[in-house]
Nucleic acid binder design. Structure first.
Lengths: 162, 162
DNA sequence: ACAATGGGTTCCAAAAAAGAACCTGTCAAG
DNA sequence: CTTGACAGGTTCTTTTTTGGAACCCATTGT
């Protein structure tokens, strides 16, 4: 499997990774969620090489995850903002954040906490079933071919996910 | 920021990415969740270069995400299995999967569906607050320094996440 | 004795990233 | 009317990572 064909794999994970599955993209998006919007600010906060940053921002814009919005004319300047597609990556960030909090924090605990505005508590995310509301884990799911499945998938699928 | 120092960043996202933030690791883990356990099988299913696969499996094992379990002696053969730390990455996979289903599927729909054993429905994951049970999104959260925060973080933090 | 099997390691060429310098409009100050 | 600053890139060159193929090694079946 080559990297450029990843977006045509019959797998939503592979397709997602074709956009966010490299060294820098999710860190750039972290800054977006923290309301960073300008080239210079991304560069300073991340310590990323400028041309790598330019490339990532371009690819994210082409993918519809970010959009360029002018914030002044003469000289024209544009900032990068999350689209709805980009905002929808929040669960991905949250899952990685919660996993890092649990497994990668030192003995002193995680470096940042997230507080839920609605209830006021420091929280983490729980994944629940969209239909019955029960918590989901790897052993509670089975996989089956969907409407976009190519024939080759049909023979491979059939087990559960653990 | 250099890649090798990512695991010491005061950010759980960066620390998580120091393990799963490269081109291949999450695809290797996808196969693990689909119960692939042997070197040859990873190689065939992923089409990954052998030494890259060997390197990823070693790093994941060192990180405690996979463990090597002997499945026969003479000749000794070992297989790779998810540890508890690895199984805990399921929400990350699920988030990426759901995002791909929603945003990266063609008009014919997603290639695979996940069915919840408990309720029998085809489902996706919903992220809810661990304290109040309400759905979470980017705009409903604020960030604040945690117990492991270095001084530099204290001035940068303080906004919400969108 | 010889090939097959599982699980690697080694070598070389191609692609991607790091780091630093350079370019381009548009102002604003001297 | 020249000099400098600023935002936002682009162009080099050097180092790391990949991809692809070949090779290695212990066992075991024929």
């Amino acid at each position: 499997m080559r990297w450029e064909e990843l977006d045509r794999e019959p797998c939503s994970l592979a397709r997602s990774l074709s956009i966010v599955g490299d060294r820098w993209t999710l860190l750039v998006l972290r800054e977006c969620f923290l309301r960073v919007r300008r080239f210079e600010e991304f560069e300073q906060r991340l310590g990323i090489a400028r041309h790598v940053l330019a490339d990532r921002l371009k690819k994210l814009t082409e993918a519809g995850v970010l959009r360029k919005e002018p914030y002044q004319e003469r000289p024209r300047r544009e900032e990068y903002r999350l689209t709805e597609k980009g905002l929808d990556l929040y669960p991905v960030m949250l899952s990685l954040l919660d996993w890092g909090d649990k497994w990668m924090a030192g003995p002193e605990g995680p470096p940042l906490l997230r507080r839920h505005k609605a209830c006021g508590h420091v929280v983490h995310a729980v994944h629940v079933c969209s239909e019955c509301g029960e918590p989901l884990d790897a052993r509670s799911m089975t996989v089956e071919p969907g409407p976009g499945a190519p024939p080759a998938v049909l023979k491979a699928a059939g087990g559960d996910t653990k």
